[in-house]
Write a protein that binds this DNA or RNA. Structure first.
Length: 502
RNA sequence: UCCCCGAUAGCUCAAUUGGUAGAGCGAGCGGCUGUUAACCGCUAGGUUGUAGGUUCGAGCCCUACUCGGGGAGCCA
């Protein structure tokens, strides 16, 4: 059935010829003798023009009353027209209605996030989600392509696992025939053993974390890709990570230009994402955070926000004044719509103004030894126009498996990659401790049961080599690239803390 | 777990100091031959999240609860 219909993305090939498309009614406008039907078919949007006299009267009336998201096929001549959404439109000669829809809940006007999440199964049809879904597909395709083309072997690591990468408090427990297991939070430990067989490996799958985090950066179930490489040092890992991320961004720019534009993403800044990325050590980052530069940066940001607030308030007051007077009806309605927008904007600015001094205080009081907080990462990230590596974190704040810097025992050979313009961490990685006895010490130091790690320690007994890897969060990457502020929009069916609709 | 904010028509939001609950969209009907979230006219649509309290009078004030949003810790 599918094969006999023309896909909307291919309409250009049918210029001045007849085509039949099959899809759903996305939106329609009628002007008495002429109707504009916007059809979506999963590959794009197409405006179909139905003119009275050129289609049977009965069909014309039927189309005029057709509800949003009704399914149908439309036949007509394909012609180029600048005024049309995709550049091409269909002059309708016939149509077959497959299913009539009434009262589709998601209208072309604005909706709140709660309503949209409750209707996620339908929301996936809307343009914004469709664009994000296409870009996510490209990101995942680019991830696999990059590793497959660079000599990495795919290893599927288990989802049921007894191993804990970090601490067990953030894991989802599972009753495995009476045995307590949990859902994986990383494939890394298993992957290390595979790296000793294949050299360069990666795993890619869902990951589960029971962190009680209610922020725009967190999901309890998300997708993560983790490469692991034998015979590599920290510099090698950074180089791998920057080439990898640059490749993903380049692929999205190449394949999803129109989707990026539809989403309002910053393609100019994205096209500058090329190696080398900025490199900071943790110690340098702390100096920046606690220093004058951050103080000035945040103070300037606060001034800008206050200015923005003042302007928005002025505009709101002006509009409110105008609404009190005698004005045309259409102007009154337009003002009301603008007021709603401005009030939302004002709310956001107020939250940022409220947070700014808190973040400034956290940054100024930052003590060497603590892990970087979310707001600290945001500040560093906002100061840069390209991704930033932060390396060499304090050993005490990090996981047991990270390799101690032999030149400075207080830090480990690890790194985070912060996406620019405030998006924050998208990668975390490290060189792994490869000395058997040092690793035993670290396991004991952190109060972990050494018996659980005998196989992991074996890797350091039989031909131990320097090795390392990292994990990249798919949804965070998609959010950064698309400019979407919340990662829940970057996966089809998000799992949030206390919130699973379907 | 902690801090801040919110809940009014199917949806997005108004409602002055506590004084008769309104608008747009959506739905239905009608009009309009090039619309871009089209436009114009008419119609229907409400126990203001729940329970209690203050008051002559509560959408608005107070208390508790439920649900949601934003942020913190932690992290990809």
């Amino acid at each position: 059935m599918t094969n006999s219909f023309t896909q909307i993305k291919n309409l250009a090939n049918f210029k001045d010829k007849e085509a039949t498309i099959a899809g759903w009614l996305y939106n329609s406008r009628s002007s008495g003798k002429i109707q504009f039907l916007i059809i979506r078919d999963g590959t794009g949007l197409c405006q179909c023009i139905a003119e009275k006299g050129k289609v049977p009267d009965e069909l014309f009336e039927e189309l005029r009353h057709l509800g949003q998201e009704s399914s149908l096929t439309v036949t007509g001549a394909v012609r180029k027209d600048e005024r049309s959404v995709g550049g091409y439109e269909l002059a309708v000669s016939g149509a077959e209605i497959i299913h009539t829809t009434t009262d589709y809940p998601i209208t072309p006007k604005s909706h709140g996030i709660d309503f949209l999440l409750k209707h996620r199964h339908l929301h996936l049809r809307s343009q914004r989600q469709w664009c994000i879904g296409k870009i996510r597909h490209t990101v995942i395709d680019a991830i696999r392509r990059f590793f497959n083309d660079n000599g990495f072997i795919l290893i599927d690591t288990p989802i049921f696992t007894a191993m804990a990468g970090e601490d067990t408090q953030t894991l989802f427990g599972v009753d495995y025939f009476g045995e307590p297991l949990h859902l994986t939070q990383t494939g890394q430990l298993h992957l290390e053993s595979a790296a000793m067989s294949f050299g360069k490996v990666y795993c890619f799958g869902p990951t589960f974390r029971a962190e009680k985090s209610k922020t725009r950066r967190h999901l309890t179930e998300f997708w993560m890709v983790e490469p692991e490489v034998a015979f590599i040092d920290l510099d090698g890992l950074l180089e791998l990570a920057e080439n990898f991320v640059s490749f993903i961004v380049a692929q999205v720019l190449q394949k999803n230009k129109s989707e990026l534009e539809a989403l309002g993403a910053d393609t100019a800044t994205l096209s500058k994402i090329r190696p080398p990325f900025y490199r900071l050590t943790y110690t340098e980052a702390v100096e920046i955070l606690a220093g004058e530069r951050t103080k000035e940066f945040l103070a300037k940001q606060l001034e800008e926000l206050k200015g923005q607030k003042e302007q928005t308030e002025k505009r709101i007051a002006g509009l409110e004044e105008e609404q009190k007077g005698q004005i045309k009806q259409w102007k009154r309605e337009k003002n009301a719509a603008e007021l709603i927008e401005l009030r939302t904007e004002l709310d956001e600015v107020n939250v940022r103004i409220e947070n700014n001094p808190k973040h400034a205080k956290l940054a100024a009081g930052f003590q060497w030894g603590k892990d970087l907080g979310g707001s600290d990462e945001t500040i560093i990230s906002q100061m840069h126009d390209k991704p930033v590596f932060v390396t060499h974190y304090p050993k005490a704040a990090k996981a047991f498996y990270m390799k101690t810097d032999r030149g400075n025992e207080k830090v480990v050979l690890n790194f985070d990659l912060l996406a620019p313009a405030g998006f924050g961490e998208i990668i975390g990685g490290s060189v792994r401790e490869d000395n058997h006895n040092l690793l035993v010490e670290r396991i004991k130091d952190q109060g972990l049961n050494i018996e659980n790690y005998t196989w992991y320690l074996d890797l350091r007994k039989y031909g131990s080599v320097p090795h390392g890897g990292f994990g990249l969060g798919v949804e965070r990457t998609v959010a950064w690239v698309t400019g979407e502020r919340h990662i829940r929009q970057c996966i089809a069916f998000p799992r949030l803390m206390d919130r699973v609709y379907i």
